[in-house]
Design a protein around this nucleic acid. Structure first.
Lengths: 250, 250
DNA sequence: CGCTATTTTGAGGGCAGTCAAGCTCCGTGG
DNA sequence: CCACGGAGCTTGACTGCCCTCAAAATAGCG
Protein backbone atom coordinates (compact mmCIF):
# COMPACT_ATOMS: atom_id res chain seq x y z
CA UNK A 1 0.00 0.00 0.00
CA UNK A 2 1.32 3.35 -1.04
CA UNK A 3 1.51 5.50 2.04
CA UNK A 4 1.33 8.85 0.40
CA UNK A 5 1.93 11.69 2.74
CA UNK A 6 0.14 14.64 1.34
CA UNK A 7 -0.38 18.18 2.32
CA UNK A 8 -3.55 19.72 1.02
CA UNK A 9 -3.30 20.08 -2.74
CA UNK A 10 -3.62 23.84 -2.32
CA UNK A 11 -0.12 24.27 -1.09
CA UNK A 12 1.34 23.42 -4.48
CA UNK A 13 -0.76 25.89 -6.35
CA UNK A 14 -0.14 29.53 -6.02
CA UNK A 15 -1.91 32.21 -7.91
CA UNK A 16 0.49 35.07 -8.06
CA UNK A 17 -1.03 38.49 -7.69
CA UNK A 18 -0.31 39.66 -11.22
CA UNK A 19 -1.14 36.28 -12.67
CA UNK A 20 -4.15 37.29 -14.71
CA UNK A 21 -2.62 39.99 -16.83
CA UNK A 22 -4.22 41.17 -20.04
CA UNK A 23 -2.16 38.85 -22.22
CA UNK A 24 -2.81 35.86 -20.05
CA UNK A 25 -6.46 36.82 -19.96
CA UNK A 26 -6.51 36.75 -23.75
CA UNK A 27 -4.90 33.33 -23.78
CA UNK A 28 -7.36 31.96 -21.26
CA UNK A 29 -10.34 33.44 -23.03
CA UNK A 30 -9.28 32.01 -26.36
CA UNK A 31 -9.26 28.58 -24.73
CA UNK A 32 -12.76 28.96 -23.33
CA UNK A 33 -15.21 26.91 -25.36
CA UNK A 34 -17.70 29.76 -25.56
CA UNK A 35 -15.30 31.95 -27.44
CA UNK A 36 -13.59 29.28 -29.45
CA UNK A 37 -13.60 29.96 -33.14
CA UNK A 38 -14.08 33.69 -32.76
CA UNK A 39 -12.04 35.87 -35.09
CA UNK A 40 -9.19 37.81 -33.55
CA UNK A 41 -10.94 41.21 -33.44
CA UNK A 42 -14.01 39.67 -31.82
CA UNK A 43 -11.79 38.00 -29.27
CA UNK A 44 -10.16 41.34 -28.54
CA UNK A 45 -13.60 42.80 -27.91
CA UNK A 46 -14.44 39.97 -25.55
CA UNK A 47 -11.14 40.41 -23.77
CA UNK A 48 -11.83 44.08 -23.40
CA UNK A 49 -14.96 43.54 -21.33
CA UNK A 50 -13.57 41.06 -18.83
CA UNK A 51 -11.68 41.98 -15.68
CA UNK A 52 -9.59 39.43 -13.83
CA UNK A 53 -9.73 38.94 -10.07
CA UNK A 54 -7.83 36.67 -7.75
CA UNK A 55 -9.47 35.20 -4.70
CA UNK A 56 -8.01 33.43 -1.71
CA UNK A 57 -9.40 30.03 -0.76
CA UNK A 58 -12.67 30.50 1.08
CA UNK A 59 -13.38 33.99 -0.24
CA UNK A 60 -16.97 34.78 -1.18
CA UNK A 61 -17.59 35.81 -4.79
CA UNK A 62 -21.26 36.51 -4.47
CA UNK A 63 -24.23 35.76 -2.24
CA UNK A 64 -27.74 34.47 -2.77
CA UNK A 65 -30.40 37.17 -3.05
CA UNK A 66 -28.01 39.96 -3.78
CA UNK A 67 -28.84 41.82 -6.98
CA UNK A 68 -26.97 40.12 -9.79
CA UNK A 69 -24.65 42.50 -11.55
CA UNK A 70 -21.94 40.29 -12.90
CA UNK A 71 -21.19 37.03 -14.55
CA UNK A 72 -18.12 35.01 -13.62
CA UNK A 73 -15.86 32.70 -15.56
CA UNK A 74 -13.38 30.45 -13.79
CA UNK A 75 -9.91 30.91 -15.23
CA UNK A 76 -8.00 28.93 -12.66
CA UNK A 77 -8.90 27.00 -9.52
CA UNK A 78 -12.28 25.74 -8.37
CA UNK A 79 -15.38 27.45 -7.08
CA UNK A 80 -18.16 26.06 -4.87
CA UNK A 81 -21.73 26.91 -5.75
CA UNK A 82 -24.06 26.36 -2.82
CA UNK A 83 -27.34 27.22 -1.19
CA UNK A 84 -28.42 27.12 2.42
CA UNK A 85 -31.54 25.53 3.80
CA UNK A 86 -33.75 27.35 6.27
CA UNK A 87 -31.99 25.56 9.12
CA UNK A 88 -28.57 26.46 7.78
CA UNK A 89 -27.48 23.20 6.20
CA UNK A 90 -25.41 23.55 3.08
CA UNK A 91 -26.53 22.17 -0.26
CA UNK A 92 -23.62 21.98 -2.68
CA UNK A 93 -25.03 22.48 -6.15
CA UNK A 94 -21.87 22.34 -8.17
CA UNK A 95 -18.13 22.50 -8.18
CA UNK A 96 -16.89 24.70 -10.99
CA UNK A 97 -13.54 24.45 -12.69
CA UNK A 98 -11.71 26.00 -15.61
CA UNK A 99 -13.98 27.73 -18.14
CA UNK A 100 -17.17 27.25 -16.20
CA UNK A 101 -19.58 30.15 -16.18
CA UNK A 102 -21.71 31.19 -13.21
CA UNK A 103 -23.38 34.12 -11.53
CA UNK A 104 -26.09 36.29 -13.05
CA UNK A 105 -27.22 34.10 -15.88
CA UNK A 106 -30.87 35.03 -16.00
CA UNK A 107 -30.78 38.54 -17.20
CA UNK A 108 -34.32 39.73 -17.70
CA UNK A 109 -35.59 42.06 -15.04
CA UNK A 110 -33.44 42.92 -12.06
CA UNK A 111 -32.76 39.43 -10.82
CA UNK A 112 -30.67 38.22 -7.92
CA UNK A 113 -27.98 35.62 -7.72
CA UNK A 114 -29.67 32.30 -7.11
CA UNK A 115 -26.80 30.80 -5.10
CA UNK A 116 -23.70 31.58 -3.10
CA UNK A 117 -20.26 31.22 -4.65
CA UNK A 118 -17.05 30.65 -2.70
CA UNK A 119 -13.52 30.09 -3.87
CA UNK A 120 -12.68 26.53 -2.94
CA UNK A 121 -9.04 26.85 -3.90
CA UNK A 122 -7.19 30.08 -4.52
CA UNK A 123 -8.47 31.06 -7.90
CA UNK A 124 -8.52 33.50 -10.72
CA UNK A 125 -11.91 34.51 -12.03
CA UNK A 126 -12.81 36.63 -15.03
CA UNK A 127 -15.71 38.95 -14.42
CA UNK A 128 -17.99 40.78 -16.83
CA UNK A 129 -21.03 42.92 -16.12
CA UNK A 130 -24.36 41.58 -17.20
CA UNK A 131 -24.88 44.55 -19.47
CA UNK A 132 -21.63 43.94 -21.28
CA UNK A 133 -22.33 40.25 -21.50
CA UNK A 134 -25.70 40.87 -23.08
CA UNK A 135 -23.99 43.10 -25.57
CA UNK A 136 -21.51 40.34 -26.43
CA UNK A 137 -24.26 37.78 -26.84
CA UNK A 138 -26.23 40.09 -29.07
CA UNK A 139 -23.22 40.88 -31.20
CA UNK A 140 -21.61 37.47 -31.49
CA UNK A 141 -24.37 34.96 -32.01
CA UNK A 142 -21.88 32.09 -31.89
CA UNK A 143 -21.22 32.96 -28.29
CA UNK A 144 -24.90 33.08 -27.45
CA UNK A 145 -25.39 29.60 -28.87
CA UNK A 146 -22.40 28.24 -26.99
CA UNK A 147 -23.55 29.73 -23.71
CA UNK A 148 -27.08 28.47 -24.22
CA UNK A 149 -25.64 25.07 -24.83
CA UNK A 150 -23.61 25.17 -21.63
CA UNK A 151 -26.56 26.26 -19.54
CA UNK A 152 -28.75 23.58 -21.07
CA UNK A 153 -26.11 21.04 -20.14
CA UNK A 154 -26.07 22.34 -16.58
CA UNK A 155 -29.83 21.91 -16.53
CA UNK A 156 -29.45 18.30 -17.63
CA UNK A 157 -26.89 17.74 -14.91
CA UNK A 158 -29.19 19.22 -12.29
CA UNK A 159 -32.00 16.96 -13.45
CA UNK A 160 -29.72 13.96 -13.30
CA UNK A 161 -28.96 14.90 -9.71
CA UNK A 162 -32.66 15.13 -8.93
CA UNK A 163 -33.14 11.66 -10.31
CA UNK A 164 -30.21 10.32 -8.32
CA UNK A 165 -31.35 11.83 -5.04
CA UNK A 166 -34.91 10.68 -5.69
CA UNK A 167 -34.22 7.09 -6.56
CA UNK A 168 -30.77 5.89 -5.55
CA UNK A 169 -29.70 4.69 -2.10
CA UNK A 170 -26.87 6.61 -0.42
CA UNK A 171 -24.07 4.32 -1.45
CA UNK A 172 -24.98 4.67 -5.12
CA UNK A 173 -25.27 8.43 -4.86
CA UNK A 174 -21.83 8.73 -3.33
CA UNK A 175 -20.33 6.44 -5.96
CA UNK A 176 -21.97 8.67 -8.54
CA UNK A 177 -20.55 11.88 -7.18
CA UNK A 178 -17.08 10.34 -7.01
CA UNK A 179 -17.25 9.34 -10.65
CA UNK A 180 -18.45 12.77 -11.69
CA UNK A 181 -15.74 14.52 -9.72
CA UNK A 182 -13.09 12.20 -11.08
CA UNK A 183 -14.20 12.99 -14.62
CA UNK A 184 -14.51 16.72 -14.13
CA UNK A 185 -11.71 17.64 -11.78
CA UNK A 186 -9.60 14.50 -11.51
CA UNK A 187 -6.05 14.03 -12.65
CA UNK A 188 -4.57 10.79 -13.93
CA UNK A 189 -2.12 9.46 -11.40
CA UNK A 190 -0.23 6.23 -10.83
CA UNK A 191 -2.94 3.59 -10.91
CA UNK A 192 -5.90 5.90 -10.43
CA UNK A 193 -7.57 9.26 -10.75
CA UNK A 194 -6.72 11.73 -8.04
CA UNK A 195 -9.42 14.19 -7.12
CA UNK A 196 -7.38 17.29 -6.71
CA UNK A 197 -9.62 19.39 -4.61
CA UNK A 198 -9.93 20.01 -0.88
CA UNK A 199 -13.16 18.06 -0.53
CA UNK A 200 -14.30 17.16 2.93
CA UNK A 201 -16.86 14.47 3.70
CA UNK A 202 -19.06 17.38 4.65
CA UNK A 203 -18.88 18.65 1.07
CA UNK A 204 -19.68 15.27 -0.43
CA UNK A 205 -22.61 14.97 1.94
CA UNK A 206 -23.90 18.38 0.87
CA UNK A 207 -23.75 17.32 -2.78
CA UNK A 208 -25.83 14.21 -2.42
CA UNK A 209 -28.29 15.00 0.33
CA UNK A 210 -26.77 13.01 3.14
CA UNK A 211 -24.55 13.52 6.20
CA UNK A 212 -20.81 13.44 6.72
CA UNK A 213 -21.09 10.41 9.02
CA UNK A 214 -22.87 8.43 6.34
CA UNK A 215 -20.31 9.54 3.75
CA UNK A 216 -17.57 8.33 6.04
CA UNK A 217 -19.19 4.92 6.41
CA UNK A 218 -19.73 4.52 2.68
CA UNK A 219 -16.24 5.73 1.84
CA UNK A 220 -14.81 3.26 4.34
CA UNK A 221 -16.69 0.48 2.60
CA UNK A 222 -15.37 1.53 -0.80
CA UNK A 223 -11.85 1.71 0.57
CA UNK A 224 -12.14 -1.80 2.00
CA UNK A 225 -13.26 -3.14 -1.35
CA UNK A 226 -10.25 -1.49 -2.99
CA UNK A 227 -12.14 0.84 -5.29
CA UNK A 228 -10.65 3.98 -3.80
CA UNK A 229 -7.87 5.27 -1.58
CA UNK A 230 -8.48 8.20 0.68
CA UNK A 231 -6.88 10.63 3.03
CA UNK A 232 -7.79 13.91 4.59
CA UNK A 233 -9.39 15.98 1.86
CA UNK A 234 -8.29 13.79 -1.02
CA UNK A 235 -9.55 10.68 -2.74
CA UNK A 236 -8.01 8.54 -5.43
CA UNK A 237 -10.33 6.51 -7.61
CA UNK A 238 -8.72 3.15 -8.38
CA UNK A 239 -11.63 1.46 -10.06
CA UNK A 240 -13.85 3.86 -11.89
CA UNK A 241 -15.76 1.07 -13.60
CA UNK A 242 -16.79 -0.47 -10.32
CA UNK A 243 -17.96 2.85 -8.94
CA UNK A 244 -19.95 3.60 -12.09
CA UNK A 245 -21.67 0.24 -11.73
CA UNK A 246 -22.51 0.94 -8.11
CA UNK A 247 -23.91 4.29 -9.21
CA UNK A 248 -26.33 2.47 -11.51
CA UNK A 249 -24.63 3.75 -14.63
CA UNK A 250 -24.12 0.19 -15.83
CA UNK B 1 -68.70 21.98 2.57
CA UNK B 2 -69.00 22.39 -1.13
CA UNK B 3 -69.58 18.97 -2.58
CA UNK B 4 -68.31 19.62 -6.05
CA UNK B 5 -68.94 16.77 -8.41
CA UNK B 6 -66.29 16.90 -11.04
CA UNK B 7 -65.35 14.86 -14.00
CA UNK B 8 -61.74 15.03 -14.97
CA UNK B 9 -60.92 18.49 -16.27
CA UNK B 10 -60.04 17.01 -19.65
CA UNK B 11 -63.59 16.46 -20.64
CA UNK B 12 -64.20 20.19 -20.94
CA UNK B 13 -61.24 20.84 -23.14
CA UNK B 14 -61.17 19.65 -26.66
CA UNK B 15 -58.49 20.35 -29.14
CA UNK B 16 -60.11 20.18 -32.50
CA UNK B 17 -58.04 18.59 -35.23
CA UNK B 18 -57.52 21.71 -37.31
CA UNK B 19 -57.10 23.88 -34.24
CA UNK B 20 -53.53 24.93 -34.82
CA UNK B 21 -53.84 26.49 -38.23
CA UNK B 22 -51.25 28.85 -39.62
CA UNK B 23 -53.10 31.97 -38.46
CA UNK B 24 -53.63 30.63 -34.99
CA UNK B 25 -50.03 29.52 -34.93
CA UNK B 26 -49.00 33.08 -35.69
CA UNK B 27 -51.19 34.38 -32.91
CA UNK B 28 -49.80 31.90 -30.42
CA UNK B 29 -46.23 32.55 -31.43
CA UNK B 30 -46.64 36.29 -31.08
CA UNK B 31 -47.76 35.69 -27.49
CA UNK B 32 -44.77 33.56 -26.66
CA UNK B 33 -42.32 35.54 -24.52
CA UNK B 34 -39.36 34.43 -26.58
CA UNK B 35 -40.69 36.09 -29.68
CA UNK B 36 -42.33 39.07 -28.07
CA UNK B 37 -41.26 42.35 -29.52
CA UNK B 38 -40.12 40.87 -32.80
CA UNK B 39 -40.99 42.88 -35.89
CA UNK B 40 -43.70 41.47 -38.14
CA UNK B 41 -41.38 40.09 -40.84
CA UNK B 42 -39.23 38.38 -38.24
CA UNK B 43 -42.32 36.88 -36.70
CA UNK B 44 -43.35 35.60 -40.10
CA UNK B 45 -39.99 33.91 -40.43
CA UNK B 46 -40.39 32.32 -37.05
CA UNK B 47 -43.88 31.18 -37.93
CA UNK B 48 -42.57 29.67 -41.12
CA UNK B 49 -40.26 27.24 -39.35
CA UNK B 50 -42.73 25.85 -36.84
CA UNK B 51 -45.13 23.00 -37.50
CA UNK B 52 -48.13 22.40 -35.28
CA UNK B 53 -49.06 18.96 -33.95
CA UNK B 54 -51.92 17.79 -31.81
CA UNK B 55 -51.47 14.98 -29.34
CA UNK B 56 -54.02 12.97 -27.40
CA UNK B 57 -53.63 12.73 -23.65
CA UNK B 58 -50.93 10.21 -22.82
CA UNK B 59 -49.23 10.35 -26.19
CA UNK B 60 -45.42 10.30 -26.22
CA UNK B 61 -43.68 13.27 -27.79
CA UNK B 62 -40.16 12.04 -27.42
CA UNK B 63 -38.10 9.55 -25.45
CA UNK B 64 -34.92 9.70 -23.43
CA UNK B 65 -31.78 8.68 -25.33
CA UNK B 66 -33.30 9.08 -28.73
CA UNK B 67 -31.29 11.40 -30.97
CA UNK B 68 -32.67 14.89 -30.48
CA UNK B 69 -33.91 16.36 -33.71
CA UNK B 70 -36.56 18.80 -32.64
CA UNK B 71 -37.49 21.39 -30.13
CA UNK B 72 -41.03 21.69 -28.83
CA UNK B 73 -43.12 24.61 -27.67
CA UNK B 74 -46.40 24.06 -25.82
CA UNK B 75 -49.21 25.99 -27.50
CA UNK B 76 -52.07 24.49 -25.55
CA UNK B 77 -52.45 21.89 -22.82
CA UNK B 78 -49.81 20.48 -20.49
CA UNK B 79 -46.87 18.16 -21.01
CA UNK B 80 -45.10 15.91 -18.52
CA UNK B 81 -41.34 15.78 -18.56
CA UNK B 82 -40.02 12.70 -16.81
CA UNK B 83 -37.18 10.27 -16.37
CA UNK B 84 -37.11 6.70 -15.21
CA UNK B 85 -34.87 5.21 -12.60
CA UNK B 86 -33.05 1.95 -13.17
CA UNK B 87 -35.83 0.12 -11.34
CA UNK B 88 -38.52 1.80 -13.37
CA UNK B 89 -39.79 4.43 -10.93
CA UNK B 90 -40.86 7.69 -12.50
CA UNK B 91 -39.21 10.98 -11.64
CA UNK B 92 -41.35 13.89 -12.77
CA UNK B 93 -39.00 16.72 -13.61
CA UNK B 94 -41.50 19.30 -14.75
CA UNK B 95 -45.00 20.02 -15.90
CA UNK B 96 -44.98 22.30 -18.89
CA UNK B 97 -47.74 24.65 -19.92
CA UNK B 98 -48.39 27.34 -22.49
CA UNK B 99 -45.23 28.80 -24.05
CA UNK B 100 -42.83 26.44 -22.34
CA UNK B 101 -39.97 25.14 -24.43
CA UNK B 102 -38.54 21.63 -24.21
CA UNK B 103 -36.81 18.90 -26.16
CA UNK B 104 -33.43 19.16 -27.82
CA UNK B 105 -32.03 22.23 -26.08
CA UNK B 106 -28.37 21.30 -26.05
CA UNK B 107 -27.43 21.49 -29.62
CA UNK B 108 -23.73 20.93 -29.91
CA UNK B 109 -22.76 17.53 -31.21
CA UNK B 110 -25.36 14.92 -31.91
CA UNK B 111 -27.06 14.88 -28.55
CA UNK B 112 -30.03 12.91 -27.32
CA UNK B 113 -33.17 13.99 -25.53
CA UNK B 114 -32.40 13.98 -21.83
CA UNK B 115 -35.94 13.08 -20.73
CA UNK B 116 -39.23 11.61 -21.84
CA UNK B 117 -42.14 13.87 -22.75
CA UNK B 118 -45.79 12.84 -22.65
CA UNK B 119 -48.94 14.80 -23.29
CA UNK B 120 -50.68 15.08 -19.95
CA UNK B 121 -53.80 16.62 -21.41
CA UNK B 122 -54.74 16.68 -25.08
CA UNK B 123 -52.45 19.33 -26.39
CA UNK B 124 -51.16 21.30 -29.30
CA UNK B 125 -47.42 21.58 -29.64
CA UNK B 126 -45.36 23.64 -32.05
CA UNK B 127 -42.30 21.85 -33.34
CA UNK B 128 -39.14 23.15 -34.97
CA UNK B 129 -36.05 21.28 -36.06
CA UNK B 130 -32.88 22.01 -34.15
CA UNK B 131 -31.20 23.21 -37.32
CA UNK B 132 -33.93 25.73 -37.99
CA UNK B 133 -33.95 26.81 -34.38
CA UNK B 134 -30.23 27.44 -34.43
CA UNK B 135 -30.75 29.52 -37.52
CA UNK B 136 -33.40 31.59 -35.76
CA UNK B 137 -31.21 32.11 -32.71
CA UNK B 138 -28.32 33.17 -34.88
CA UNK B 139 -30.44 35.57 -36.86
CA UNK B 140 -32.55 37.12 -34.14
CA UNK B 141 -30.33 37.74 -31.17
CA UNK B 142 -33.30 38.90 -29.08
CA UNK B 143 -34.69 35.41 -29.30
CA UNK B 144 -31.42 33.84 -28.27
CA UNK B 145 -31.28 36.03 -25.18
CA UNK B 146 -34.86 35.24 -24.26
CA UNK B 147 -34.34 31.52 -24.65
CA UNK B 148 -31.13 31.63 -22.65
CA UNK B 149 -33.02 33.43 -19.95
CA UNK B 150 -35.75 30.82 -19.89
CA UNK B 151 -33.30 27.94 -19.68
CA UNK B 152 -31.37 29.68 -16.93
CA UNK B 153 -34.63 30.04 -15.02
CA UNK B 154 -35.34 26.34 -15.47
CA UNK B 155 -31.89 25.66 -14.08
CA UNK B 156 -32.68 27.77 -11.03
CA UNK B 157 -35.92 25.88 -10.57
CA UNK B 158 -34.14 22.54 -10.78
CA UNK B 159 -31.63 23.69 -8.18
CA UNK B 160 -34.44 24.83 -5.91
CA UNK B 161 -35.90 21.34 -6.22
CA UNK B 162 -32.57 19.81 -5.29
CA UNK B 163 -32.45 21.98 -2.21
CA UNK B 164 -36.02 21.06 -1.28
CA UNK B 165 -35.47 17.33 -1.69
CA UNK B 166 -32.18 17.53 0.17
CA UNK B 167 -33.33 19.47 3.17
CA UNK B 168 -37.10 19.57 3.63
CA UNK B 169 -39.26 16.86 5.22
CA UNK B 170 -41.96 15.34 3.03
CA UNK B 171 -44.80 17.51 4.23
CA UNK B 172 -42.93 20.69 3.33
CA UNK B 173 -41.96 19.35 -0.08
CA UNK B 174 -45.54 18.52 -0.91
CA UNK B 175 -46.73 21.92 0.27
CA UNK B 176 -44.06 23.40 -1.97
CA UNK B 177 -45.11 21.53 -5.05
CA UNK B 178 -48.74 22.49 -4.47
CA UNK B 179 -47.84 26.16 -4.28
CA UNK B 180 -45.74 25.94 -7.43
CA UNK B 181 -48.47 24.16 -9.34
CA UNK B 182 -51.07 26.63 -8.16
CA UNK B 183 -48.94 29.51 -9.38
CA UNK B 184 -48.03 27.97 -12.71
CA UNK B 185 -51.12 26.06 -13.78
CA UNK B 186 -53.82 27.09 -11.32
CA UNK B 187 -56.98 29.01 -12.05
CA UNK B 188 -58.66 31.42 -9.68
CA UNK B 189 -61.88 29.92 -8.48
CA UNK B 190 -64.49 30.64 -5.82
CA UNK B 191 -62.44 30.87 -2.65
CA UNK B 192 -59.32 29.19 -3.95
CA UNK B 193 -56.99 28.24 -6.75
CA UNK B 194 -57.99 25.19 -8.70
CA UNK B 195 -55.21 23.08 -10.10
CA UNK B 196 -56.66 22.22 -13.44
CA UNK B 197 -54.63 19.23 -14.41
CA UNK B 198 -55.15 15.50 -14.13
CA UNK B 199 -52.57 15.06 -11.39
CA UNK B 200 -52.58 11.82 -9.47
CA UNK B 201 -50.92 11.34 -6.11
CA UNK B 202 -48.51 9.20 -8.03
CA UNK B 203 -47.48 12.24 -10.07
CA UNK B 204 -47.02 14.42 -7.01
CA UNK B 205 -44.94 11.67 -5.44
CA UNK B 206 -42.75 11.48 -8.53
CA UNK B 207 -42.15 15.24 -8.38
CA UNK B 208 -40.89 15.34 -4.82
CA UNK B 209 -39.12 12.05 -4.31
CA UNK B 210 -41.70 10.26 -2.23
CA UNK B 211 -44.48 7.69 -2.61
CA UNK B 212 -48.16 7.96 -3.40
CA UNK B 213 -49.11 6.59 0.04
CA UNK B 214 -47.14 9.29 1.77
CA UNK B 215 -48.64 11.94 -0.51
CA UNK B 216 -52.06 10.67 0.44
CA UNK B 217 -51.32 10.94 4.15
CA UNK B 218 -49.93 14.46 3.83
CA UNK B 219 -52.77 15.62 1.57
CA UNK B 220 -55.28 14.23 4.07
CA UNK B 221 -53.63 16.25 6.80
CA UNK B 222 -53.75 19.42 4.73
CA UNK B 223 -57.39 18.77 3.92
CA UNK B 224 -58.22 18.33 7.61
CA UNK B 225 -56.55 21.63 8.44
CA UNK B 226 -58.63 23.31 5.74
CA UNK B 227 -55.77 24.48 3.55
CA UNK B 228 -56.93 22.52 0.53
CA UNK B 229 -59.89 20.65 -0.90
CA UNK B 230 -59.31 17.60 -3.00
CA UNK B 231 -60.97 15.06 -5.19
CA UNK B 232 -59.94 12.56 -7.75
CA UNK B 233 -57.26 14.20 -9.86
CA UNK B 234 -57.97 17.72 -8.71
CA UNK B 235 -56.92 19.94 -5.82
CA UNK B 236 -58.11 23.36 -4.80
CA UNK B 237 -55.75 25.49 -2.74
CA UNK B 238 -57.75 27.46 -0.18
CA UNK B 239 -54.90 28.91 1.81
CA UNK B 240 -51.85 29.52 -0.28
CA UNK B 241 -50.13 31.50 2.47
CA UNK B 242 -50.33 28.63 4.89
CA UNK B 243 -48.92 26.20 2.38
CA UNK B 244 -46.08 28.53 1.50
CA UNK B 245 -45.22 28.78 5.19
CA UNK B 246 -45.23 25.01 5.53
CA UNK B 247 -42.94 24.86 2.52
CA UNK B 248 -40.44 27.03 4.36
CA UNK B 249 -40.97 29.97 2.01
CA UNK B 250 -41.99 32.19 4.90
C1' DC C 1 4.12 19.15 20.47
C1' DG C 2 -0.32 20.40 21.71
C1' DC C 3 -4.54 22.11 19.25
C1' DT C 4 -8.26 21.86 16.15
C1' DA C 5 -10.63 20.20 12.22
C1' DT C 6 -11.60 16.08 10.12
C1' DT C 7 -12.66 11.43 10.13
C1' DT C 8 -14.13 7.21 12.26
C1' DT C 9 -17.11 4.25 14.84
C1' DG C 10 -20.99 2.97 17.80
C1' DA C 11 -25.68 2.89 19.61
C1' DG C 12 -30.36 4.29 19.20
C1' DG C 13 -34.36 6.28 17.25
C1' DG C 14 -37.53 8.18 13.85
C1' DC C 15 -39.25 9.44 9.41
C1' DA C 16 -40.98 7.73 5.69
C1' DG C 17 -41.01 3.61 2.64
C1' DT C 18 -43.14 -1.04 1.96
C1' DC C 19 -46.72 -4.24 2.03
C1' DA C 20 -51.43 -5.12 2.41
C1' DA C 21 -56.25 -4.47 2.57
C1' DG C 22 -60.36 -1.90 2.02
C1' DC C 23 -62.75 2.04 0.12
C1' DT C 24 -64.53 5.44 -3.35
C1' DC C 25 -65.25 7.28 -7.46
C1' DC C 26 -66.22 7.03 -12.26
C1' DG C 27 -66.71 5.13 -16.76
C1' DT C 28 -68.66 1.32 -19.14
C1' DG C 29 -71.53 -2.10 -20.80
C1' DG C 30 -75.35 -5.04 -20.07
C1' DC D 1 -80.47 2.51 -15.00
C1' DC D 2 -77.76 -0.24 -12.39
C1' DA D 3 -74.16 -3.40 -11.60
C1' DC D 4 -69.54 -4.11 -12.35
C1' DG D 5 -64.65 -3.38 -12.71
C1' DG D 6 -60.76 -0.94 -12.33
C1' DA D 7 -58.02 2.99 -11.27
C1' DG D 8 -57.13 6.00 -7.78
C1' DC D 9 -57.18 7.01 -2.96
C1' DT D 10 -57.03 5.96 2.09
C1' DT D 11 -55.54 3.77 6.17
C1' DG D 12 -52.97 0.64 9.13
C1' DA D 13 -49.02 -2.04 10.73
C1' DC D 14 -44.43 -2.99 10.25
C1' DT D 15 -39.72 -2.33 8.80
C1' DG D 16 -35.41 -0.43 7.68
C1' DC D 17 -32.40 2.95 5.99
C1' DC D 18 -30.18 6.58 7.37
C1' DC D 19 -30.05 10.53 10.49
C1' DT D 20 -28.83 12.00 15.18
C1' DC D 21 -26.17 12.19 19.01
C1' DA D 22 -21.97 11.10 21.22
C1' DA D 23 -17.24 10.14 21.80
C1' DA D 24 -12.78 8.56 20.44
C1' DA D 25 -8.95 8.48 17.03
C1' DT D 26 -6.20 10.68 13.64
C1' DA D 27 -3.92 14.06 10.86
C1' DG D 28 -1.96 18.27 9.80
C1' DC D 29 -0.91 22.93 11.13
C1' DG D 30 1.09 26.56 13.81
Amino acid sequence: MVKRKRTTPLSDEHVEPGHCSSELRARILSDVPYFKGLAAPALDAVNHYFRAFNYAAGAALHHENEPAEALFLVAHGTVKLLQYSASGEEVLLDLLGQSDLFGGLTMLGQRCYPQNAFAQTPCCVLVITITDFRYLLRTYSEVALNVLDAVARDLEAAQATIRAISTLPVEARIARVLVRLADRLGEADDGGILIQSPLSHQDLAAMEATTSETVSRVISGLRRSGDIETGRQWIRIRNRTNLARLAGEI
